[in-house]
Amino acid sequence: MWKEKYKIGVELIDSQHKELFNRVYDFLSTMQSKGDWDEKLEKVKETMNFMQEYVVVHFNDEEAYQDEIGYPEREEHKKVHADFRSTINNYVEIFNKQGFSEELVQQFGAKLMTWLIMHVCKADKKIGEYAQSKGENN
């Protein structure tokens, strides 16, 4: 799932993105694996929790990095992260209330995948460009 073109040129963020994409990949491939949904549900939940925890860790570190280099659009970026955190939390709430149906988990997986790719390719790339313009490569 990870592609070289997703690199933004900041080592810490790139390595975390790689890890995040790997965890999303594990989640998606468990979700899409053949077999009865109820039987694979435990593993789906496990990979989903694992991935969700890492999203939070990564967002926090990426925000700290933006503060550190004085990235001018950091507040806006924090808001985008906060919005996506609440999207995730809304899904968690729905899962807890309505159960982990295959349809809902697939919808969540699709949102997560497309959001992540778009966010890294557009918003995060700009952090990398700023860091490079300041000579802060790593």
């Binding site: 697939q106 997986g109 699709a110 497309t114």
Partner: peptide, 11 residues
């Protein structure tokens, strides 16, 4: 399936 169609919807 649900994953493919949701992903297309997002695009």
């Amino acid at each position: 399936d649900g994953f493919v169609s949701s992903a297309l919807g997002e695009i």
